[in-house]
Amino acid sequence: MSWRPGKGDGRYLVGIFSRENSSGDDIVFKYINDQVKEAQKIGFLNYPDFPDFNKEYSTNLKTALTLRLMPKTRADRNDYLSFWNANGEGLDWFDELGFTQGELATDTFEFLAEYPKRHNGIGINFISSIAALSHLDLSPDCVKIGDKLRFELEPKNQFDKNAVKILKGKDLIGYVKKGHNLFFHKVKEEEVEIKVTNLEKNGKMNQIYFSVKVNN
């Protein structure tokens, strides 16, 4: 679980959800204390349903996160899941939350999966969006849907030793979100295909979504 004070600000990985049994609902949430302490310096309070920083939460997690999941009664649910590559067989609510990231317009929490190279024996295929975009002032025509991108690790980054750059050719487009960046330390460039899947722009580039697919 990541938090940031506002759009355009850096992310803090303040908590982690985990489960040992991939087919079960035995999910646990706990805060990451060092990240919480850093985030508190710039205004982080807590996640409202998890007020105790020292407690390990293991009950009613789905209920606490229901608003972050697309209701099954929504007519556009399939389109929404397709946008996030979250409509594969065997995905439960916890997988769905990780794939769709659980963002709301009312806060700045995101739920960013630490992806494996393969899920249920198939090369992972997930969607992410560019970080640090607002700092680069990119042209609205810098990329188009379908463009292939590439990545480079940036271990000497002063803010994050796990930082990963996203580039189109030699041009810097932005960075991988903190949380998703860990995936790129598990793969080689030739093992993955990265493509622009969607754009948000209004006179300037507001957001770039891209897919990451592990070659089988």
Rank of each mutant, 00 (worst) to 15 (best):
R4Q: 14
R4K: 15
G8H: 09
D9Q: 14
V14A: 11
G15Y: 15
I16Q: 12
F17M: 09
D25F: 13
I27K: 02
I27S: 04
Y31W: 13
D34G: 00
A39Y: 15
A39E: 14
K41R: 12
L45Y: 01
Y47M: 14
Y47N: 04
Y47W: 13
F50T: 11
D52M: 11
E56D: 05
S58N: 13
T59P: 06
N60P: 00
L61Y: 10
T63S: 08
A64H: 11
K72M: 02
T73M: 09
R74H: 12
Y80T: 08
A86C: 02
G90F: 05
G90T: 01
L91A: 14
L91M: 15
W93D: 06
F94C: 06
F94I: 06
D95T: 01
D95G: 02
D107L: 05
T108R: 08
L112C: 11
N120I: 01
G121F: 07
G123Q: 13
N125W: 02
S128G: 11
L136A: 09
L138M: 14
S139E: 09
V143I: 07
R150V: 00
P155F: 00
P155T: 01
K156N: 08
V164F: 09
V164W: 11
V164E: 05
L167C: 02
K168E: 02
K170F: 03
G174S: 05
Y175G: 05
V176L: 12
K177Q: 11
N181A: 13
F183A: 07
K186E: 08
V187E: 03
E189I: 02
E191W: 03
E191S: 01
T197E: 14
K201P: 09
K204L: 09
K204Y: 12
M205H: 01
S211H: 15
S211D: 15
V212N: 14
N216G: 15
N216D: 15
